[in-house]
Design a binder for these strands. Structure first.
Length: 361
DNA sequence: TCTATTTGACCGAA
DNA sequence: TTCGGTCAAATAGA
């Protein structure tokens, strides 16, 4: 466990370095270009790539302990999470993103892959077959292909915001041959469209609560304005994703846990999170250094049903592969848990300790 | 008219 | 060479 904690800390350090370099690059991009600034850009890009490659190596090393596919059933729909390591680099990956290829001159030799994970959704005969396509995001179908050996064609979808915000998230929907009520959905890439809007501050962060995503982003924005070391984690959270392979409805928790009652507020040192925020998967509860053990937070049943949205939203919210895992506590209880398998860590001189279970009001 | 879907063609990895 | 993934023109629908 100590080794795991050390590697977790190292991973956080690597990612934070990458984050800082990316910020530097962003600042430099606003400076009038010159030959020297271009060299600086190149240098920063190389450093960032190096850091993330190193981080990916660390994650791959840890991926051997990944759990088994799990399932959740709710309102006649069974969802089996069967994820590949989202950040791993696989030589056999089917992923082919031309945008990445264009951006990376080395891609011809070493192909980069986007995070990829698969889930199976079983719908009851009475449920419309369109249901699996509604996962909380806006998808646009861009192709359909007959697959060798498959009875049903495979549908290809990309994020509607691809052109506007450059969101590279895609998904493939394949109906099962054996059971037409089962859909296998493969997600590729992360929804950067949610982050894009996150970088555009609004005058009143609490104003726009039209959707789960927007609310989530506003919460992030309001918290990022806090001059607190937590910001480091908030920033880190933006570029990472959570593993959900432990989403097992029958999973008994052997460890202590706390819950967010649906009517309660969560208070940290600097902010209070209300129930609606939690229901919209606002992440601050699990990035607070004051939390410990397993954190459960309530979500609306619709969010639970749209596990695709859940996965993607959480993906845009946090995580370090295999460091943080999500669990469900009961089949019909829309409650998820986030586990921090380490008690202490340090970021840029700031010590974070999970030692205050009396964190909730 | 605008937006989304369909579908044949094309490209690249294996 | 095959096959999966994507492109883009044609088409449909609001």
């Amino acid at each position: 466990m100590d080794n795991m904690g050390d590697s977790s800390n190292n991973l956080i350090h690597e990612l934070l370095q990458g984050l800082e370099l990316a910020k530097q690059l962003q600042k430099n991009l606003h400076v009038p270009s010159s030959s020297s600034s271009r060299e600086t850009h190149e240098l920063l890009i190389q450093k960032i790539i190096s850091i993330f490659e190193k981080a990916l190596e660390m994650i791959n090393w840890k991926s051997g302990s990944l759990g088994e596919p799990s399932s959740q059933q709710s309102l006649g729909v069974t969802i089996r999470m069967s994820e590949s390591p989202p950040l791993s680099i696989s030589p056999h990956s089917e992923d082919s993103d031309r945008d990445l290829t264009e951006q990376d001159p080395n891609a011809s030799r070493k192909r980069k892959t986007l995070p990829r994970w698969t889930k199976q959704i079983q719908v009851n005969p009475g449920v419309g077959v369109e249901w699996p396509l509604d996962d909380g995001y806006n998808w646009r179908k861009y192709g359909q292909k007959d697959i060798l050996g498959a009875v049903y064609p495979r549908g290809y979808y990309r994020c509607t915001h691809r052109n506007v915000r450059g969101c590279l998230a895609t998904k493939q929907v394949q109906r099962s041959d054996e059971d037409p009520n089962v859909f296998e959905i493969t997600y590729k890439g992360k929804h950067t469209c949610t982050m894009a809007s996150n970088t555009m501050p609004t005058s009143n962060p609490n104003e726009n609560q039209e959707s789960n995503l927007n609310t989530n982003q506003n919460v992030l924005h309001s918290l990022e304005q806090q001059p607190n070391p937590n910001e480091l984690l908030l920033n880190l959270r933006e570029g990472l994703r959570v593993q959900t392979e432990h989403l097992d409805s029958s999973n008994d928790q052997p460890f202590s846990s706390f819950h967010f009652p649906s009517s309660s507020n969560i208070k940290t040192e600097n902010q209070i999170l209300t129930s609606p925020m939690l229901e919209n998967f606002s992440p601050p509860s699990y990035i607070s250094p004051a939390t410990s053990g397993i954190g459960h937070f309530s979500v609306s049943p619709s969010v639970v049903n749209n596990l695709g949205g859940y996965t993607s939203m959480v993906s845009s919210g946090f995580q370090i592969n295999d460091m943080i895992s999500a669990t469900t506590s009961a089949a019909n209880s829309p409650t998820f848990g986030i586990e921090f398998p380490f008690d202490q860590f340090e970021i840029d001189g700031h010590n974070f300790t999970f030692d205050n279970p009396q964190f909730f009001s």
